[in-house]
Amino acid sequence: MNAFRLAGDMTHLLSIILLLHKIRAMKSCAGISLRTQELYVIVFVTRYVDLSMKYYSFYNSIMKIVFLGTSISIVWYMRYHKVVKQTYNKDVDTFRHIFLILPCFVLALLINRAFTVIEVLWTFSLYLEAVAILPQLVLLQRSRNIDNLTGNYVFLLGAYRAFYLLNWIYRFFIENHQVRWIPWLSGLLQTAIYADFFYYYIKSWKNREKLKLPA
């Protein structure tokens, strides 16, 4: 495993730790999109169906279990925890899941590496992950106050896929890996979706101002 891949996984893990900290310690999920979190559960469940069938490494299995467990528990807290659920911005989190899930599923049926259940689900998970942040970004844009934890959470989540892009470049040129258009292009799209957010995040950080996205 190269350093970019590890950095990607660690920023991903850190983003989840940050979000869980906000939920468990501050008892708040203000500014967090339940829609996006539910999409991540679907992403992990469909991508890691091979967990019980194929073993890659201890690291790989543990990380999969952590991502599955934490994403499900985040959704549980936001939906059912008696204090946390009251901080959820239900009225502004109105992005419809189906508008993302359905096109991604159709695309995965049409464009995939092999027409098998595992491959189609895996491809679907990549397409869906690429756009799963959209409800969260819409929610941030509608929020007057974005707290630091939420801003940092979204930033780390974006940084994660950016590191993966570097990892794929490294694997292609240094480790002589094959061309893999499906993860590369969906990963590129996923990172590009954050471009606007990155711009305002870095700007607010440089000027030591509170993060605010223009409506």
Binding site: R5, H12, D50, N60, M63, N176, H177, Q178
Partner: peptide, 10 residues
């Protein structure tokens, strides 16, 4: 090109 298995990623 070698193994190039992206399924080993997360």
């Amino acid at each position: 090109p070698s193994n190039g298995n992206v399924h080993d990623e997360l």
